[in-house]
Nucleic acid binder design. Structure first.
Length: 566
DNA sequence: CACTAGAAAATTTTT
DNA sequence: TTTTCTAGTG
């Protein structure tokens, strides 16, 4: 099936690829196939949702000796390319923080009482759709939208949504460099504007769309899995290929996951039969966390007692810490787990999250820096509270700054002297910690250190992250923590999307899967009664339960324990 | 405008 | 419980 997907020819192609079926491999191989067949790289475009995914594809292509690479990038970088080509400028796109600042301003200007975040969320979702008329919306939203877009225009800056909308206009006009092949990864995550972009491009080019409707977990930001069905109508003629063999999960995990989704025919595992699924119900989140920590300790060969050096060579049956991940629905749930791991001296890493203060400091620096590159100068000046006149007189100084590749400190120092911009030492150190001025790009640009370095999975540490962040990753040992009522699914959210989220979590495992839940949980300072997630009902038959609280497998009273679970 | 007290919210995330 | 938001003061 993979080969058929790679070499399919003649019309559009929809590849339905379940977890671990070799989605990225097929995508990369197909690009190689097209290149080898003589397609010019500039006629091929591969679209992803994240820069990380784009780099991964680029990396794999290079390693396979692809030679000159086709265009590979996110939807937004594609849009950015179209817009800058058309307008002959380099649009300045607001980061999240800048956007928030601007929308607060817009909220003031429009005199709206409703919460800023709330009204903006609504507007953004609206802008991701093509089938809604703004005129039909309520007065507050209308007034807000008008003021917000007036500000964007005034400052000459863009937001992400507008970038895509403008790109759509360009594609609609037909005035763009022709493509022959467009390949879209994670197709189940497209929002309406992105879908329309692909569909329109598909009238002149061949589309290869790869995705898995069961892994659509971004409905809250406008995505809809329905497009995987809809494209069968819009992209014609289309071949549809399903990849049914999974190379990651053991059969048992696939069967359980299929049962969760109500799928009749589970994927077929190509792995040697292994893997078991254990379920543990605990009294509270402390016990749950302790049990997870103890289990990891044991699996990794007793970290508490072994010497540090022994850790790297996991002996037979033992696990390396980097093989293990703990997933949870929301970041708030990680605290007790982090504490339990720390108590046992088990190293772990969590994706960094920037505090509000850090974001603020970084944005301040971004304004300074971007101002010096000469883009959207009025905008940055207005944010910094510097008069335009004052700045103009210093233009010669500025020319120097962007070119000289100053270190972050030097850069700041220059600005302090010339503009008297105040910055506390605390802020400066936050900036140093997270931001670097790129030495490779021309013109120079800012780089988030974490973004560049990413998570280093070779480090001997357990990985903690949200279920969402785990999509696309794979670990031999997966713990799904806090699979409770009210948490999974989260409060009043879309149940089916939450179900898919659990599906994503379960299918990260290439060997062992642990699911834990708690009867009581402290959440936002309140103790709430939870208990197992309703999603687990109906699939418990696949689990081996864990004896409550102690961490020992329940050998004797399995039946009774199972009855008690719900 | 900068600061702060008190209120209100608190997922999930990328660009 | 902790962080973020916002209106109101200085």
């Amino acid at each position: 099936m993979q080969e058929e997907a790679v070499t399919s020819d003649g019309c559009h192609l929809l590849i339905v690829a379940g977890p671990g079926t070799g989605k990225t491999m097929v995508l990369v191989s197909r690009i190689l196939f097209l290149l080898k067949r003589g397609e010019k790289p500039e006629n091929i475009l591969a679209v992803t949702f994240t820069n990380k995914a784009a780099s991964e594809i680029r990396r794999r292509l290079s390693r396979a000796g692809a030679g000159r690479l086709p265009r590979i990038g996110t939807f937004h970088s594609w849009a950015y390319g179209l817009v800058s080509e058309k307008t002959g400028t380099r649009p300045y796109v607001l980061c999240e923080r800048e956007q928030m600042d601007l929308l607060r301003e817009a909220r003031q200007g429009a005199g709206i009482k409703a919460g800023a975040k709330d009204i903006f969320q609504r507007l953004s979702l609206l802008k991701q759709r093509v089938d809604v008329r703004l005129v039909d919306q309520d007065q507050d939203l209308l007034a807000f939208s008008e003021e917000y877009h007036r500000l964007l225009k005034k400052y000459g800056v863009w937001d992400y949504d507008d970038l895509l909308l403008k790109a759509l206009k360009i594609i609609e006009s037909g005035d763009y460099a022709c493509l022959k092949h467009v390949l879209v990864d994670e197709f189940q995550d497209v929002n309406p504007v992105q879908y329309r972009l692909v569909e329109l491009t598909g009238r002149r080019a061949r589309v290869t769309a790869i995705g898995d409707p069961n892994q659509s977990i971004y409905g809250f930001r406008g995505a809809s899995p329905s497009y995987m069905e809809r494209c069968k109508e819009d992209l014609r003629p289309v071949s549809i290929i399903k990849l049914n063999v999974a190379y990651r999960c053991p059969q048992k995990v696939l069967d359980t996951a299929a049962s969760l989704m109500g799928v009749k025919r589970p994927l077929v595992s190509a792995r040697p039969q292994s893997g078991h699924i254990r379920f543990g119900l605990f009294e509270n989140e402390q016990r749950e966390a302790n049990w997870i920590a103890t289990e990891i300790d044991r699996m990794a060969g007793g970290l508490s007692f072994e010497s540090f050096n022994m850790r790297n060579q996991a002996s037979f049956g033992e696990r390396s810490l980097s093989d293990i991940c703990i997933l949870y629905r929301a970041k708030v749930l990680s605290a007790p787990i982090e504490a339990a791991l720390s108590r046992r001296g088990i190293p772990f890493h969590v994706p960094v999250r920037l505090s509000g203060t850090e974001q603020k400091a970084i944005t301040l620096f971004r304004h300074l820096f971007e101002f010096s590159t000469g883009r959207a100068m009025d905008y940055h000046l207005s944010r910094l509270g510097i008069k335009t006149e004052e700045a103009r007189r210093l233009s010669s100084f500025l020319e120097g700054v962007a070119q000289k590749r100053h270190s972050e400190d030097k850069f700041l120092e220059s600005f302090r002297q010339v503009f008297h911009v105040e910055m506390t030492e605390e802020e400066a150190s936050m900036i140093r910690k997270h931001i670097r001025i790129s030495e490779n790009d021309v013109p120079a640009s800012l780089i988030f250190k974490e973004e560049q370095d990413g998570v280093d999975f070779s480090v001997e540490a357990v990985t903690l992250m949200t279920l969402h962040a785990s999509k696309g990753l794979e670990f031999p040992v997966v713990f799904l923590a806090g699979v409770d009522r009210e948490i999974m699914p989260w409060k009043e959210t879309d149940k089916e999307e939450e179900r898919r989220l659990l599906f994503v979590g379960m299918t990260r495992s290439s060997d062992r899967l642990f699911i834990t839940s708690s009867r009581n949980r402290r959440l936002y300072g309140k103790r709430v009664r939870t208990g197992p997630s309703p999603f687990l009902k109906g699939i418990e038959a696949f689990f081996s339960p864990v004896k409550l609280g102690t961490g020992r497998p329940a050998k004797k009273s399995i039946r009774r324990k199972q009855k008690n679970l719900f």
